[in-house]
Amino acid sequence: MANHSATHPAHVQHHFVDSDQQFESAKMGMWVFLVNEILFFGGLFTAYIVFRAWYPDLFTQAAQELNKLWGGVNTIVLIGSSLTVAMAIRSAQKNQKRGLELNLLFTIILACVFLVIKYFEYEHKLHLGIAPGSFWNPTPEILAELSHPKANIFFSIYYVMTGIHGLHVLVGIGLMIWLYIRARKGHFSSEYYTPVEITGLYWHLVDLIWIFLFPLLYLIE
């Protein structure tokens, strides 16, 4: 980007007054996107609430098939990754290039751990025929534990909500890899770290959604 005036740093685009205004605008834009994300997941949470109100017994029975331990481990993994993202932003603000790279790397690793655990959870369930909607085909052992005629509905909600959340984690990993490459090239400093800040906001929202998914899906008795 060409430098339009001697007083403007190279990263400031010509339609912004200064670096601060550009940063604040980008951050507000991200918050508007997060509003959209909250209402997008909100539709799914609404479906959850409606079906739980209709079939309260279904939810308490079907949730027994979810593994509290791995759900809990994944919650702590995501909290850890939120902490490393927050530390990455702090490193960028303090011009610590190595700290920024390491914290982004930790975040990518923790996000991958989350998805690997999720993969094994899905794999285990699908192996037992615990599948969503019309794919519901449980083994006789599962059917003996979970005889509710609407059991497939719970797992439709479970797979769609955790699946779309998992997709967000996958997108987040892609963004973190992009940030890592740019950090290695020395693109970020205390003067300009807008992409780190707003990707961090996105990542924290993914954590926020999981904070609600975990008790609502795994911890009901």
């Binding site: 939120s82 902490l83 993202v85 927050a86 906001l201 924290h204 929202l205």
Partner: peptide, 8 residues
């Protein structure tokens, strides 16, 4: 609240 107030 903790995530929104301090991490975000």
């Amino acid at each position: 609240f903790l995530v929104a107030a301090f991490f975000m």
